[in-house]
Amino acid sequence: MAHDTHAISYKTYGLTWFWLLVLTGLALGLGYAPIPERIKALLLVCTTLAKVLVIAAIFMHLRYERINLILITFTPLILAIIFFSFTFPETMGSASHVIQVR
C-alpha cells in the first residue's frame, strides 16, 4: 500500500510545521493589513488553500496515495464551490433586507 512504501522523515514534518506557522503569520498580517476587503479576501483564500494543501499532502500523506483516492477527496469540495457559486449571487441583489441591523 502507498503508506507502507513512503516513510516521511521527521525533518520534513518539522519543515512543514515551520512553513505552516509562516503561513499563519502571513494570514494574521493580512487580517490587519489596510487593504481593500476584496483583495484581502482573495489573499486569505490563497494562504488558506496553501495551508490546507500542505497539511493534506504531507501530514495526511495524500501525495503518496493513488490518484483515484486524491480525486474522490477533492471532488466534493468542487461541488461545494459550485453550491457557493449558486447561492452567492443572491446576496448581490435585493436580499440585503433579510438581515436587519438594530
Binding site: L69, I72, A80, F84, T87, E90, A95, S96, I99, V101
Partner: peptide, 28 residues
C-alpha cells in the same frame, strides 16, 4: 475514514457557506 472526512468536510462547508451568505446579506 476518508469517506467520513469528506462527509464531515461538507458539513463544515455548509456552515461556512451559510456564514458567508449571512455576512454578505448583512448591511454591516
Amino acid at each position: 475514514m476518508w469517506i467520513f472526512i469528506i462527509s464531515d468536510a461538507l458539513t463544515f462547508a455548509g456552515f461556512l457557506i451559510a456564514y458567508g451568505f449571512m455576512r454578505s446579506i448583512s448591511p454591516a
